[in-house]
Structures are given as C-alpha cells and as structure tokens.
Design a binder for these strands. Structure first.
Length: 306
RNA sequence: GGUACCAUAGCUCAGUAGGUAGAGCAACGGACUGAAAAUCCGUGUGUCCUUGGUUCGAUCCCGAGUGGUACCA
C-alpha cells in the first residue's frame, strides 16, 4: 500500500500548528516540523513552538532537536527526514509535515543537489573577502571560478555569490557543475496543502502574537541569548530587533513594532515562495474537515479551496 | 457665536511663480539549490475636501460650503 506525506505549509501565524495537530490526530499519526528555527531548543518563545499540551497530543519531530551552536542545513534536513520517514512509514500509512520553511519542505519533496560540505576555514576565508574586499571582489572571483554561474546568479546578493565561491574552493570544480535541478522521485505519495486567509486577518494575528510573545517573556529569552547574538540561528525575526533594543538602538516599543513589521514581511516572502509551486491546494485554516479528507485520500465532494 | 489657520498617498507632511504632484514611514509585487524567520531585487498605490468663479488650463488665485485645530467669547 502506498504511503502518503501530507505537507501543510503557510505563512507564519496563519494557524499551522493547530491545523496540523487536528489532521494528525484524525489520522492517528505523527508530525514532522519543517521550520528552520523551531529546531533550536534555546529559541522557544520567539519561534512560537507548539506548547507542551500540543506536543503531548501529537508526537512532533525536529522541534528543539538542535542547539544554536550546532551547524545545520537544508541538505542535512532532507537526509534526516528521509531516514525518519523510512521508520515512520513502517508504522503509519500517512505522516504529516508542517512548517514555514519553504526551502526545507521542497528539499524533502523534490530533493536537492548534492555537493560537499564546505570546511569552516573556507567559509571564514570567503566571509573575510566580503567584509574586507567587498562584493565587487566576490563577483570577480566567481567570474573566474565559475563563469556559467556568474551569468545566472543574482550579483547583488552576496550570500549567493559566497556560497558558490565556497563550493568552488572546496572542490576545485565550478559550483554550477553540481547543479542538476533534478526532481528526485520519492517512494511515497505527496499531498500539498497551503494555508492562507485574508491579508488583513493574517496581519492581525501577527501583530497580536508579537504582544503575546512579549507577555510570555520573549525579552528574558533574548537576554539569555544576547552573548551569542552573532550566531546565525539568532539572525531571526523577534530576536534581532530585541538585541538592537538592548544595544540601545531603539526603545522597546519600537523594537516590538519592528518585530511586527518584519514578521509581516517574512510572511509575504513565504507566500511568494509557496505560490510558485502550483501543486499546493490553497485552503483556509478553518476548513480542517476538508483537509482531513484530502489527507486521507478522499477527494470526493466539495472542497473549500481558496 | 466670532476670528485665525489648516484640508494633498494608508499615516506624517512637502510642493507646484497656474501646465493634473513627491519624501519618510507603512504598504504592495518578485527572486530564491547546504546560514532560508536568512539574503536580494522591484513598485507611488492620489476625485490634491466639495462646489461655483477667473483662466486656453485650477491642487495652487477668488467666493461659498463642509470638516478639523487654536484662540476669543
């Protein structure tokens, strides 16, 4: 019998946690989180991880499984998920995946090209080039190492250029030679659902949730993390704005407003990402019964797609 | 009730010696292959309060109205 992965994505604060839990409960299965920040156990309030009650209701994977000091990336997530699914599908015919990190979800659904992990020293070297020589220097290096990628990459985006150079240095091969963009077949069926609601409502949720996080003690969480604020994991909405407040760059009210604005912008970027994949069925988070039907493979009747 | 000032983008405001307008913030759209809640790119979205008048032409000048603010009563 064919196994099925039900992917439920959506912008931050849309209500994914509740939906995923209800669907997973109805199907008596477990949840895989695809959220690049909820993995860090030190970041709980600011990443809105499911509460203890929710975690007790349905077994969740990839929540609080890492430390902010750990190195982790999409490819590792892909592999970890595939291994986990091998195990879960022995027990369950259907597994639910939910989260807001579109790249992570896609890595599991479609696969991602392999290339060697880059040594820390090489990454530091390239980062140093950017800091001391600037982006134009990076562009010249990339043009030399990998003219093909140079012609395609966003030359304004230093991260993209740096990534490519790092791989070139690590392997002695052009970065573009690793890119196949091949869709990797998976030994299970994938059903994709994307949640959305009127923008105004989404923004109300986001604005309200920022206040709730502050009430729950986000500032205290951030204060504990302050000494490590330069770690990548902490370059995150909700944390960076409060670090800036602690540095005296603006007052607390301003910091909270910036968290709200930056979360809104993040939500828009997520929506743009998900919209590109036409396989997603867009649904309102309140239409859980329909989602359970889809998740169970029962497509009959009217579905409240939006 | 009287006098003065104001009315332009979602908000705060600038401006046009009369030729249908622009900043900041907010907002909107897009890209994305191992740091992705990251990173990067693009876009003014407007009955210039309403209505008469002067004018080839009014957001701008004049009158009236409406709404607001301040002061005097």
């Amino acid at each position: 019998m064919s196994k099925r992965l039900v992917v439920i994505v959506g912008p931050t604060a849309i209500g994914k946690t509740r939906v995923a839990i209800e669907v997973a409960e109805a199907l008596h299965t477990e949840i895989i989180s695809c959220d690049s920040r909820q993995m860090y156990r030190e970041m709980r309030i600011g990443t809105a991880v499911p509460c203890a009650e929710e975690l007790a209701a349905v077994k969740h994977h990839f929540i609080g499984n890492l430390s902010i000091f750990d190195y982790y990336n999409v490819s590792m997530f892909e592999q970890d998920c595939l291994h986990l699914l091998d195990r879960l599908f022995l027990e369950y015919p259907v597994v639910v995946m939910t989260g807001g990190s579109g790249l992570y979800a896609d890595a599991l659904c479609n696969g991602i090209d392999d290339f060697p992990t880059v040594d820390t020293e090489i990454r530091q070297t390239v980062t140093g080039w950017f800091q001391t020589e600037g982006i134009e220097y990076l562009r010249r290096q990339l043009k030399m190492f990998d003219p093909e990628h140079y012609s395609k990459v966003d030359l304004q985006n230093h991260k993209r250029i740096m990534k490519a150079i790092e791989v070139c240095l690590q392997t002695g091969r052009p970065y573009s030679s690793f890119l196949t963009a091949q869709h990797r077949p998976r030994p299970f069926e994938i059903v994709k659902i994307a949640l959305n609601r009127p923008r105004e409502e989404l923004y109300e949720n986001i604005n309200r949730r920022a206040g709730i996080m502050m009430d729950e003690g986000l500032l205290e969480e951030v204060k504990e993390l302050y000494p490590n604020r330069h770690l990548n994991a902490l370059n995150t909405v909700g944390y960076k704005e409060l670090f800036a407040y602690m540095d005296g760059q603006h007052d607390l009210d301003t910091a909270v407003e910036l968290i709200r604005r930056n979360t809104r912008r993040y939500a828009k970027r997520q929506l743009t990402w998900f919209a590109r994949d036409k396989a997603y069925q867009w649904m309102h988070p309140d239409h859980i019964d329909d989602m359970i039907k889809i998740a169970s493979g029962k497509y009959g009747g009217h579905l409240s797609t939006i």
